[in-house]
Amino acid sequence: MIDIPYRSALIIGVGPGISGSLTRLLRAAEIPVVIAARHVDKLTPLVDQTGAIALPVDASDAGQIERLFAETDARIGAPEIVLYNASGRLRGPIAELDPSQVEQAVAVSALGAFYTVQQAAKRMVPAGKGAILLTGATAGIKGFALSAPFAMGKFALRGLAQSAARELAPQGIHVAHVVVDGGVRAEHRPDPPDRPDSTLDPDAIAQCYIDLLRQHRSAWSSELEVRPWVEKF
């Protein structure tokens, strides 16, 4: 198995789940990592555990994303791995949703991803190297009732991933969209005793990201679906 061919990473939208697991795997490979979230105080345990650098960002703000990349450049160099894991969730009947809240939810899921891909491309295209990973969801494949804003954002994210992959792959940049099709296991959401592994283990999902990063460019994946073995689809 080849080593990860990238030497620095920026993860946006970090929490205790998928992004936390990926941070631990990357740091175990001695790759410097900047982790970013709206509220960095929640990242203290992960920073203490891994030595990652935590920076604040509102992913829906283009200026803040630009400043985050500039600060990352200063701290660890231009990131060769960029993961966008942020998303905006808003549930409710379409007729009752607040338009301003819908706008914010879509901005986090979709516009923030565009701002991130744009800043990554500005650094990776001249270098002719890099990987951009975008965390999708079932909602990017089919929209569920009472979840229109999330579906809108995740459908847009998938379109961005497809367009960016077709544009940037020939320039040496691996763009991949990961469809997380199912609930992700967490402390507050463990598997039922009678249904082990019925949710996605965040460590297992993170390993899939590592596997993507290790792919040879002659066989790059642009989209990967992950789901529990008992999931119906």
Rank of each mutant, 00 (worst) to 15 (best):
M124F: 12
A107Y: 00
F114L: 14
L55W: 08
A131D: 10
A139Q: 05
Q49V: 08
G130Q: 12
G136F: 01
S87C: 14
R67T: 14
A59L: 02
T116C: 07
L83I: 10
A62G: 13
R89F: 14
Q118Y: 15
A54Y: 08
G88D: 08
G136R: 01
E71R: 12
A78W: 13
T138N: 14
V102R: 01
A74V: 03
A139F: 02
V57H: 03
A62E: 15
S60I: 07
R89E: 08
M124C: 09
S87A: 15
Q104F: 06
Q49N: 14
Q101A: 12
L97C: 07
V106C: 07
P93W: 09
I53W: 12
A95E: 14
S100F: 14
Q119F: 12
Q64E: 15
K129P: 05
G88E: 07
D98M: 04
A52V: 00
A52C: 04
A121R: 15
L68K: 03
A113C: 04
A121Y: 13
A113D: 01
T50V: 10
V108A: 02
K129Y: 03
I65P: 00
A74T: 06
L111Q: 08
Q118G: 05
I132S: 04
G128Y: 04
V106Y: 02
A52M: 02
Q104R: 13
A86V: 05
Q104V: 05
V117P: 00
G63Q: 12
K122M: 07
I53S: 15
Q118T: 09
A127D: 10
Y115W: 13
V117I: 06
Q119T: 09
F114C: 07
V57R: 02
V102P: 01
V108F: 06
L111D: 02
A110C: 07
V106N: 02
T72G: 06
S109A: 06
F69G: 01
L111V: 00
F114P: 00
L83Y: 06
R123F: 07
A120R: 03
S60G: 14
E103C: 06
A52W: 00
L55A: 09
I81P: 08
D61C: 14
V106A: 04
Q49P: 05
A110G: 00
E96M: 12
E66F: 08
A70Q: 12
V108E: 01
A59E: 05
I76R: 09
A120D: 02
D73A: 14
R67L: 12
E80A: 03
I81R: 11
A62W: 11
R67M: 13
E71I: 00
D58F: 08
A54W: 06
E103W: 11
A78L: 11
L97W: 08
P126T: 03
